[in-house]
Design a protein around this nucleic acid. Structure first.
Lengths: 346, 346
DNA sequence: TTGTAGGCGTTATCAG
DNA sequence: CTGATAACGCCTACAA
């Protein structure tokens, strides 16, 4: 762990100037002989470029960050899988941050942007506080937000249309004859929580169904929390016949609880998730879910960031990705009995 | 996105020297008046320290990296959840890398260590190639490997004891009366794949059970791959009565396939996973799984790294975490029928 | 307590 | 094509 060699060490050993070393290392035109000597010396010394010094001079790190609110949520993984290759192909290394939706951690990541550790940032905050907005306004490197920020925030913004998404789901449930459609949501002070809650209410009203506070249960966007919320809901409203869950993890928790309670899905209670993650197709029964285009949003976000990094000093752009309903067994297919019925939903 | 202010900008505005600015910003003793002026100027300018320049001088970044082979595997998340707070408490920012078990990506992360972007690294490689070992030997910053590296590799090493772990599981299955115990493994050229495969063979032999190639199926450490592998296995060896899966994801895939095939778990086929992730307890039926102490390993790794970062220039240390069998429904409990039987396993 | 100046390892400009 | 040399932004003796 002794101090590593620098271009100076190489220069000495090769008997050339540091300028020549730098040139060789950066592939600039050099005499064959010089190049050979330098490369040989570098090799022998086990030289590794000090990227920190390089960044200081070049003002670039060739690194980009993606800050995820919940690493355990496959929706973010779907984004990651799209973001990673796009940036990699463009020569950037992607570093991840796990913020656990803690505002302070997100602010810290934003801060690290200012510290110049990365050239750009993709972030998907659950809550958007004033502190967030301040830092975004002051950001000196490109930021792309996946999720919604207020109009006028000077960053690119890739949005889901959860309003339409929730409507797709509620309409689907209604079409199946469900009339006691409950909503299991995450915290209302989160961006998705607020949007999905409002959308649910709106969808019901448009269908002429009464909005009933009892049918709304707030928990959090995790499986265990979802399960807890659904347990409470069932106790309070035993006649509920459909659950609109604010994400797939909540929906999986719902399935756990319904199974334990002996309620058949979808016969007794239909369940819809959101995000259409891998888990939705893999669960039992498989889960109908509203795709909010996680993968697509990741891809778009990466491309927007890349565009900015390449010098696009354009107006902030807002892209909205369209939702899609993936109908599966939890609302329309066979429930516990070994498959074969063919009825299809909606 | 104009060029940000530096300590020079602040110095001018505050009418002091850059040295004073630096001192104030670092909390060194300064006259009240000076401090006030500097802080005011910094505030007004929206100053953010350039961490790159700071690092160049101080030779520290206060950042540490954790390279995960598979972000989608909850076993790594369990590690992460332990690593994160330990390092954070010590003042380090944790950055994550997703390598997808691609050797080239892992080498790149190791390279980034040499580039001085981070002060240390925790890494959990699936395969350990010569290139890995070379870079580890040459590493100029502390590295902790979660997983096994050959004796003599000059890095701290936190190991699981999958040998004992597999044995616990196989013995358990044997005690339940199972005699056609198959193994569903990941690639044999991975460290865990090789270890678990060998352990399985050894465990059978010690029980006096014949080792049968037909009972071994190689796939990969993901759910879909696990499902595929189990489907093949079932087709080839219909009378199998127990599956020892090399991790929980494979085991979940196994449950999917068994359910689709109408085989009852555990009545017809008992299933054991490894890693004892959150998913094991949450699956249906809940999954018996060998805990290899992911959380514990993460914690130990973080502490070892911290020790090194604090100057511990000691001998490389090897810590092995003991396995534990978590018995659940997939081997011992009720299967598909609504619970109530009380028999307990082993 | 404060300012001046040197240096961290690179890159890039400018003469030679 | 090559070699001095000046930044990049910050920290830190050392001197005042």
């Amino acid at each position: 762990m002794a101090d590593g060699p620098t271009i100076n060490t190489i220069a000495e050993r090769a008997g050339v100037s540091i300028a020549s070393v730098s040139r060789v290392l950066n592939g600039l035109p050099t005499r064959q002989e010089t190049e050979r000597k330098v490369l040989k010396a570098a090799e022998e010394l086990g030289y590794v470029r000090n990227a920190v010094a390089r960044s200081l001079k070049s003002r670039r790190t060739d690194q980009v960050a993606f800050a995820m609110a919940d690493v355990g949520n496959p929706a973010y993984l779907a984004m990651l899988r799209q973001i990673q290759p796009v940036l990699k192909a463009a020569g950037y290394r992607l570093v991840l941050h796990s913020t656990d939706a803690v505002a302070a951690d997100e602010i810290d990541v934003l801060h690290s942007l200012g510290e110049r550790y990365v050239d750009g940032l993709i972030m998907s905050p659950l809550r958007v506080t004033d502190a967030h907005l301040e830092m975004l306004a002051a950001a000196r490197a490109p930021v792309v937000i996946i999720g919604s920020v207020p109009e006028g925030t000077p960053v690119d913004n890739v949005r889901a249309d959860s309003r339409t998404g929730v409507r797709l789901a509620v309409d689907h449930l209604y079409a199946l004859g469900r009339r006691r459609i409950a909503m299991v949501n995450g915290p209302l002070d989160t961006v998705p929580g607020a949007a999905r809650g409002a959308a649910y209410r709106e969808a019901l009203e448009d269908l002429g169904l009464p909005y009933d506070d009892d049918l709304v249960q707030i928990g959090d966007f995790y499986r265990a929390e979802g399960a807890r919320a659904v347990a409470e809901l069932l106790a309070r409203v035993p006649d509920v016949d459909a659950l609109m869950c604010a994400n797939d993890l909540i929906a999986l928790g719902a399935l756990d609880v319904l199974r334990a309670a002996g309620r058949r899905v979808p016969d007794d209670v239909a369940v819809v998730g959101m995000d259409d993650t891998d888990l939705a197709a893999a669960s039992w029964p498989s889960l109908t879910s509203v795709s909010l285009g996680s993968a697509e949003r990741g891809k778009v976000a990466a491309e927007l960031l890349l565009d900015r990094l390449r010098g696009g000093d354009r107006e902030p752009r807002v892209v909205t990705v369209a939702p899609r309903l993936a109908v599966r067994a939890s609302t329309a297919g066979p429930a516990y009995e070994p498959a074969d019925r063919k009825e299809g939903g909606a």
